[in-house]
Amino acid sequence: MGSNKEPNQGRKEFIKKGLLAGGGLLVASELIKWKPMIEAVKATQHTEVLPLVETVSTEDVVIRMQKELHEALKKPVEEIHWIMVIDQKKCVACDACTVGCSAENGLPPGVVYRPVIKEEIGTYPNVSRRFTPRPCMHCENPPCTQVCPIGATYKRPDGIVSIDYDKCLGCRYCLSACPYGARSFDWGEYHTENTPEVMPYELEPTFEYGDEKVRKGNKSPIGNARKCHFCIHRLQNGMLPTCVTTCIGRATYFGDLNNPNGLVASLIGSPRVKRLKEKLGTKPSVYYLT
């Protein structure tokens, strides 16, 4: 029995060793194949900070908008389409734009170009607030210019809806026609009226539409419709609208829609974007990021 067992044993051993050797060879050959890959993985393990892609800038958006503004101004006026983008998540309702605008344009009492609408949403304890600054929408299809009997308010080739103060009759039809309530009438009042004297700073000239005008007596802009004009007089001189520069949260952006690499054009390609009362077909040039 013993002798019978041995050769048997020997054969088993042999098969075992053979299998082991074969397996080992297989593993070894696989290892040789994988080595460069493993090394390649190891090579990436010590990481380094890559430089940012050139298109992403670290400079303040105001500086960038300023640069883009200068670039746009080199183009002929009909190739520009000024738009404004307002990020409602960034707006803190500080009213700096409203105040800055009033100071820039010397706005009398009762005239406002850019109020900030403050809404409360939800019921306690689930509440939040939404802030909507409301400049003139500078619509592509403005209902206000359409109704003006004398064409005193009109759309400029760069998309700005402007008013010819020296032509305007003061019929206030455009005020009724604006779906956004963006127009005010200059009633001829002064902030310091009914005080011993009207303060001289209220009689300082303003420069809307690039015209020097002093509000006095019945002279324009008294008795005219007035509204936001994207600070045309500042744009002409290479400056951003006042509300853009005074916005502490950098929530208001301004630029040329026709510049595909520009900041505003990139901002409005977002699912957050909306325009007010879009169903009316007015196509506002002011976009909101909600």
Binding site: Q146, V147, C148, P149, I150, G151, A152, K167, C168, L169, G170, C171, R172, Y173, F185, D186, N218, S220, I222, G223, N224, A225
Partner: peptide, 26 residues
């Protein structure tokens, strides 16, 4: 009544000089 309702009644003649075919008022 519409004359005294204008902000600048002295410019009423503008309505006859300047025209705007899209305006009903015109």
């Amino acid at each position: 009544f519409i004359f005294i309702d204008l902000g600048h009644p002295e410019r009423f003649w503008h309505a006859l000089v300047y025209r705007q075919p899209t305006s009903i008022l015109s």
